[in-house]
């Protein structure tokens, strides 16, 4: 319990009559990179805003290093670096002025300031724009200045709302690399709806849909927890034509097979999808089952379920909300 840097308990948030969060629970230990996934409007941003103390929960609470955010707003905020969505910045300030302002508000001791500034300029790559007006910066640089602002006080916790949105592929790669480096010592929550981003950077994935937590697992766990899919093409061995029911029935027999569904009839046989448990390789069992049922196996290919499929299944099954 002590090791939880962020903890969220039964978080509920209403905006007027609409309920944005319907009871969210999770906790994040030190040094973990957590990816928040979910369709737009699922409640990712709202959850982050509650943890950072910008919004108050309707019920439930958020704790940062064991302290309730609502009762200890200043202490908890001091440990958090937060980059809101779209990186809102004071456009009338120069980058250097803005970082000075943040350092003043954060009361960073003068002795550390120079070293922190140097590190931020280097890490975020903003050395060339320090004397430029923020309003004139490109989206990529704004995002970097926002990151520098979030990290300048060397916080233990970083909360980044869509840190790579609007960046070009090179910039995305750089930010991801930065996030992975930061994740070695910091606790990090980042939201995104870019799935490869989660695969590339996160230790753990939390999927929120329609205000509820629908999955909380490692990337690996999410991709395999659903089982593996084996695409099979079968044909009759003898003269007698294939009977669909019999094929399904016979391939279903092995214990390792969860379900069988016919995809369609092809010229040379019947295409069937077999869903198996992830832990076992069901191909051998399917082969045996096919022989026993007097079927010829023309093709067999094992595929792991992609994160994208899992995401779509989890976020679309009850609402029918299409992204």
């Amino acid at each position: 319990m002590d090791s939880a840097m962020i903890e969220v308990r039964e978080l509920v948030k209403d905006y007027g009559r609409t309920r944005a969060l319907r009871g969210i629970d999770f906790s994040v230990p030190r040094g973990q990179i957590v990816g928040f996934l979910g369709p737009n409007g699922a409640g990712k941003t709202t959850t982050m805003k509650i943890i950072t103390g910008y919004l108050e929960a309707t019920s439930g609470q958020a704790l940062v290093r064991g302290l309730p955010v609502e009762e200890h707003p200043l202490e908890t905020r001091a440990h958090i670096g937060y980059l809101p969505e779209n990186a809102p910045l004071y456009e009338d300030m120069m980058v250097q002025e803005f970082l000075d302002f943040v350092a003043d508000i954060r009361q960073i001791p003068a002795a550390q300031r120079r070293q922190r500034f140097r590190l931020m300029t280097e890490v975020c790559g903003i050395g060339d724009v320090l004397s430029k007006n923020i309003g004139e910066l490109s989206k990529g640089f704004r995002q970097r200045v926002g990151l520098a602002h979030a990290m300048i006080h060397d916080p233990e916790i970083l909360i980044l709302d869509e840190p790579t949105s609007g960046l070009d592929p090179n910039q995305i790669a750089e930010i991801r690399k930065l996030i992975r480096e930061l994740g070695r010592e910091k606790t990090l929550i980042l939201s995104t709806h870019i799935l490869p981003e989660v695969q590339a950077t996160c230790d753990r994935v939390i999927i929120i849909s329609d205000g509820k937590l629908v999955a909380d697992d490692t990337v690996q766990g999410l991709m395999t927890g659903d089982g593996a899919r084996i695409q099979v093409l079968v044909a009759p061995r003898g003269e007698s034509p294939l009977e669909m029911e019999k094929v399904v029935e016979s391939l279903q027999k092995p214990d390792s097979v969860r379900s069988v569904s016919v995809v369609g009839e092809k010229e040379d046989g019947l295409a069937v999808d077999v869903l198996s448990d992830a832990a076992v390789d069901a191909r051998r069992d399917i082969f045996e089952a096919a022989i026993a049922a007097d079927l010829a196996l023309l093709e067999m290919q094992r595929q792991s379920v992609s994160l994208e499929e899992t995401f779509r299944r989890l976020t679309m099954e009850d609402g029918g909300e299409h992204v």
Partner: peptide, 14 residues
């Protein structure tokens, strides 16, 4: 309008 209030009020300031 610009959203900077969120930036400002999530820093440790009353």
């Amino acid at each position: 309008r610009s959203g900077t209030l969120e930036l400002l009020t999530t820093m440790p300031v009353r």
